[in-house]
């Protein structure tokens, strides 16, 4: 006899061995809160959106940005900001659309796909922000070098001392270091989130995909 058939025989006989929860026990259960990964994904995603919105506002209010506003750079800065908000709205819409598609009554594969899709939206949003941050930093630096009297004076002084290359090198390296730290922190965050929250889901999804090959 097949091992599984032996197990099946026992399994189907075992009905009377399970605890019987009463109506009241079950009623108490439905009042409790879920701790499913979907709930956590929702919370973490919203935190990520809020985080980037705060970052964009925080950067706007800094003294250097105020000084920056005095330059004749509106033609670049305003479109950059508008594009930023349109893309934020688009990602937000996409996130909610995908989130609402998550249904526990779908089949296992579709459920997993919808969860991963929701998470991917947020990941793309963060990647976009990172790209946006890098582009903004480069644009800001170009404008600063072009219009900031202090920096122009420093460049001229460095040029007079014959150290213009060193001056640029320090500037570029500092910027790169700042960006590398930002990317590092984000990668660490993703490694943690994906490891803790989605590790098992990813493993199971891969297992299902493997069957279809």
């Amino acid at each position: 006899m097949d091992e599984l058939d032996l197990l099946k025989k026992d399994w189907q006989k075992s009905d009377s061995n399970y605890p019987k929860l009463s109506y009241n026990d079950l009623y108490k259960m439905i009042l409790k809160k879920s701790s499913s990964i979907v709930k956590w994904i929702f919370i973490i995603s919203i935190i990520e959106f809020v985080f980037w919105i705060i970052i964009s506002f925080a950067l706007k209010d800094t003294k250097s940005m105020e000084r920056f506003n005095e330059y004749n750079a509106d033609a670049i800065i305003i479109p950059l900001a508008v594009v930023g908000y349109i893309i934020l709205a688009y990602f937000f819409y996409l996130f909610f659309k995908n989130y609402r598609n998550i249904s526990v009554t779908d089949n296992a594969k579709i459920l997993m796909e919808n969860i991963l899709k929701t998470r991917r939206t947020v990941k793309h949003y963060v990647a976009f922000n990172l790209g946006y941050l890098i582009v903004s930093v480069i644009v800001v630096l170009f404008i600063e070098f072009d219009q900031d009297p202090q920096i122009i004076a420093q460049v001229q002084k460095a040029a007079a001392d014959g150290e213009v290359l060193k001056f640029y090198a320090i500037f570029i390296l500092t910027t790169m270091l700042f960006l590398a730290i930002a990317i590092g922190v984000l990668l660490l965050f993703y490694w943690l989130v994906y490891g803790i929250l989605l590790g098992r889901l990813n493993k199971n999804y891969r297992e299902l995909q493997k069957m279809e090959v």
Partner: peptide, 16 residues
């Protein structure tokens, strides 16, 4: 039948 699906989905995917 519906319970099988939700039960398994919870066990495999949603449950932490």
């Amino acid at each position: 039948t519906w319970m099988y699906r939700v039960g398994l989905n919870t066990a495999i995917t949603l449950y932490r």
